[in-house]
Amino acid sequence: MKILVCITHVPDTTTKIKFTPDGSKLDTTGVQFVIGPYEDYALSRAVELKEQFGATVTVLNVGTAETEPSIRKALALGCDNAIRIDAEPTDAFFVAEQIAHICKQNNYDLILMGRESIDFNGGQVHGIVGELLGIPSFSPVMKLDIEGNIAKMAREIEGGKEYLQAPLPLVLGCQEPIAEWKIPNMRGIMSAKSKPLQVIAPVNPQELTKSLSFELPPPKGACKMIPADEAEKLIELLKTEAKVL
């Protein structure tokens, strides 16, 4: 079995987001970049499947050289080799075209990624890759088992789960609890340094969207405190002042 895991390199979930004064880009001062949390789950499940079936796991990232620490971490977690498409991942269609291009040359059985990146939250690359390759895609997948040529999955829906099955190959957008989060061990970290990382130039640099400017939400007004022994007054305030009841 051949598995491709596509990862993002994004600000840690605890980051306080701020932009440069002209609002044109993220102010990265003091920001720690990590593998997106949804892709951490995808990577962990890929490594579990490798342990179960002896698969080859390739990790892919569309990004500049700054993303290599995240790629090395994925290799330390148990991926066998890595591909970096040397480009800024500014548009989902562009990123999907890069992934599809690599897939066409490699015939992966499973293409895993996160349900969405936690920077732009688009949640569309898996679906576009599925269309470009003409194979099914599912998201958000929270359970994945392989039986022969069939993937048995659970997809989270509003208020519950949908269980489904489909033949490989597939593209899946993953989320918790598809696998236990893994932390690289020392042996993994040492071996990651010598695993192959191929850097490839992008193809067909066409974008369908362009973010022109960024802004923060307006600051929140002060919180109105209600004494605990007058808690019942909350309902009246919600009704007459906030007008939400």
């Binding site: 688009g122 998201s139 509003e158 969207t209």
Partner: peptide, 23 residues
């Protein structure tokens, strides 16, 4: 946006080569 609509919108974007803005 929904669990189904998000997954479907992404595929339509790929099929029609349409720019998709989410959220």
């Amino acid at each position: 946006k929904s669990s189904l609509a998000d997954a479907v919108a992404a595929r339509v974007a790929g099929r029609l080569k349409a720019g998709l803005a989410s959220n």
